[in-house]
Amino acid sequence: MKVSKRCPKCESTEMIRVEGTAGPYGTGNNIAIGATIFSYVKVPRYVCCECGYAEEWIDPEDLPKLKKKFG
């Protein structure tokens, strides 16, 4: 969905990007890479507005941080 701009389930092109968040106590759509709220990688979701299918993608600039922590 992120690349094709098309839903793989219903072929719709109507979709939205829901930004990832990092809140207190680890809430939100994120991956912790450190001990503070400032050390999270936010995980945005792409949602089809026609059928509701959703995918999560990591932004390319955050991949090195994940490789360093988990790689």
Rank of each mutant, 00 (worst) to 15 (best):
E55L: 07
T21Y: 02
I37A: 06
E50I: 01
E50T: 13
E56V: 03
L63P: 00
E55D: 15
F38I: 00
L63K: 15
Y40K: 14
I16D: 06
E56W: 03
V18A: 07
P24K: 10
P8G: 09
S4M: 09
K67E: 13
K5S: 10
Y46N: 01
T13H: 02
A22K: 14
V43E: 12
C51L: 12
S39C: 06
G52P: 05
E19C: 00
R17H: 02
K67G: 01
R17N: 04
K9H: 08
E61N: 10
T27S: 14
P64M: 02
C10R: 11
V43T: 14
N29H: 13
M1W: 01
C48Q: 09
V43I: 15
F38A: 07
L63T: 06
K69H: 12
P8V: 05
V18E: 08
E61G: 01
I31L: 15
A35N: 14
T21S: 15
E14T: 03
S12D: 03
C7L: 07
C49P: 00
T13G: 01
K69F: 07
C51W: 07
P44Y: 00
A35M: 12
K2S: 04
K2A: 10
I58L: 12
V41S: 07
I33W: 09
A54G: 03
I31Y: 05
T27R: 15
R17V: 15
V47K: 15
C7P: 02
K69L: 01
Y46F: 07
I37H: 00
E14I: 01
V41N: 13
P60Y: 07
K5V: 01
D62A: 13
I33F: 06
P60S: 14
T36D: 13
I31M: 14
T36E: 09
F38R: 10
G71Y: 02
T27P: 00
E50M: 06
G26N: 11
I33D: 06
G20L: 09
E50H: 15
Y25N: 13
C49A: 10
I58Y: 14
K5F: 01
I16Q: 11
T36Y: 06
R17A: 05
R17L: 11
C49N: 15
K9E: 12
P8F: 11
T27Y: 10
C7T: 02
G34Q: 09
V41E: 08
N30M: 12
L66D: 08
L66E: 06
C48T: 07
P60Q: 09
G71E: 05
P24F: 05
R6Y: 03
P8E: 06
C10L: 14
Y40W: 02
E55M: 09
Y40L: 00
D62W: 04
F70A: 09
